[in-house]
Amino acid sequence: MARRVSVFAALLVALALATVASLALGAVKVPFSDVIDILLGKGPGGPEQQIVEALRLPRTVEAMVVGAALGIAGAILQGALGNPLASPDVIGVTGGAGFGAILIIILFPGSIALLPVGALFFGLLAATLVFLFAWSGRNRGSVGKVILAGIAMLSLFTAGTTGLLAAYPERAPSAIFFIAGGLTSSGWEELQTIWPYFAVGFIFALLLIRPLDRLALGDDVAASLGSRPQLIRLAAGIAAALLAAASAAIAGLLGFLGLVVPHVVRMAGGSSSHTFVVPASAIGGAALLAGADTLARTLRAPIEMPVGPFMVILGVPLFLWLLRKAV
């Protein structure tokens, strides 16, 4: 118990530091005192105020929301499927979202404002197809069927994405940042469009915490306790799909976070209880993405780099260190 509390506290400190860094640092130097004044509504006005209020603040909030969403999606999928390699990629969401976004960028550049909608639609479509196939025929909803159907969908949509990029290579640079994963300074508009999907996904995930703990005891034990294992898996898949598709709509294809963060918090906290893992994954994911995004924005400022590689650079050493200790 004490260990879990200290891990939680450490994660909260990491999140606080990442948030402060995200608001205080950027391509343009804004004195920290000005940043505080601006956030308290006493800003000096001018470009500095706009940079903090219209660019950094929404981006920081997006990083936290997306990081939390992907962390939770990975945690509940791993719990529902009982597979440590489960992540939003496994249910095809990432592949579908990628295809939807690239379709808009490449074929309908005049409708670029629909990019988040395209990513969301195809991400959810991919997950829906996975569930339809996995819940049809024999062994309905079995872990193996879900994972195999997810891999098939991922391959299908990835092939579609690759085909589009190959057919229109001169438009590929516009797609690179989405594929590599990254946040943009697009204000509040995207969050305003996508927040209902995050909200439903977060609520679903909260409601699934106890059922997932029962499922961890085995399907038979869970059933004897009054749970319905297949229904829990389906609900977890839907929640993860909503969170992952919404995340991809905003931040592109960030594949590392949902897989690794839940494992990091499990190893650090020494517990697989979803009462601990789900919220800890949310906080850990938020801290990791906010920190990585700050690095991506500032390391070669004013050039912005995609955030995906920086998440890996920050997360992998910690993951390997914990893995070594755990083994």
């Binding site: 950027g26 470009p47 940079i51 640079p173 943009t184 050039i303």
Partner: peptide, 11 residues
Amino acid sequence: FARISDELVVA
């Protein structure tokens, strides 16, 4: 070409 920060554009 380079992806330049939007903060710079504002500034």
